[in-house]
Design a binder for these strands. Structure first.
Lengths: 156, 156
DNA sequence: CCTCCATCGTTGACACCCTCCACGATAGCC
DNA sequence: GGCTATCGTGGAGGGTGTCAACGATGGAGG
């Protein structure tokens, strides 16, 4: 209800717009993360897939990955292709459904994931240095609720 | 310092990662905003340019727009071209520097800006419905500091 | 005045990402 | 056995971010 009135005197409400700020902050973080992942031959996209693949022993279906990451399934195909070509993940047939292919991280993949994780963590720590630990936690919670709500609006 | 230890039992720390959440939230907001702007022949990009152009009477240089919006100057050229072709903004020569071209919104541009603003505001209100007014304000402040800090890291 | 360097706008190229559509293979219901 | 839904895959099209180069202009210094 409030925040709707914009100050006529100064510049745009643009720099106060949550959407604009989200877009800007996201861009900054993604760019910084990509820079720190470049040395490992990864990007944010492939790194997130590698994370998921390394999470479980049995593997994760590509469909599930697409859901969790909010990506189109066709994108997941390309990312897994890329990681598989580098020997970091592999596709194995599901024992219960011959349509699905379970993606798991190889030993090499888990090693790269660990090494890259160190760099990404350091970068994120630097990016979030402006906020205290409590504020970071708060931000995480607010964003989580935002994402959950937005999802609901689209899905349901 | 904390938050570095990840729970080994459950899924990835991905859904708890601030970078991932930022990316996700930004995507949701941008998509929703684009949808509500489509009826006005605009997208988030062109809308933000139109906002800046409508802010001042004298006009804004394209260079300044690029700085404020965090875009490459070449992108601003295309966006202004698009808006100018639609008759929403116009380029005028600067009285003090013949290199710069000052962009101002036309009357039609200001009218469209106002109409589109109503729709975008409504969409954003819906997107942010998960958060209370106080939380929205807090989120805005946290993001502002994040963006300011990230900028400094790159620029200085 | 003339020269050297910085800046503004513009164009072009390139890679990345998102979205949608279509298809073969398989699963599950009736 | 046939109909419909789902999984993975491929392809097309448009939006976006990044970079290099260029002409035109501005500004500093000899």
């Amino acid at each position: 209800m409030e925040g709707h009135m914009e100050q006529a005197g100064d510049a745009t409400a643009l720099t106060d717009d949550v959407g604009f700020l989200l877009s800007r902050a996201s861009g900054l973080v993604v760019r910084a993360s990509n820079a720190s992942l470049a040395g490992h031959g990864l990007r944010v996209r492939s790194y997130s897939v590698l994370l998921l693949a390394g999470d479980t022993e049995e593997g994760v279906s590509q469909r599930e990955m697409a859901d969790v990451l909010g990506l189109d399934p066709s994108q997941v195909v390309l990312l897994v292709d890329e990681l598989a070509a580098a020997g970091l993940v592999e596709r194995r047939p599901s024992p219960v459904d011959r349509r699905t292919r379970l993606v798991t991280a190889t030993d090499a993949g888990r090693a790269v994931r660990a090494r890259a994780g160190v760099d990404v963590d350091a970068t994120m720590t630097r990016q979030l240095a402006e906020l205290t630990a409590g504020e970071q936690h708060l931000l995480r919670e607010l964003l989580t609720r935002l994402v959950a709500g937005g999802r609901g609006a689209v899905r349901v």
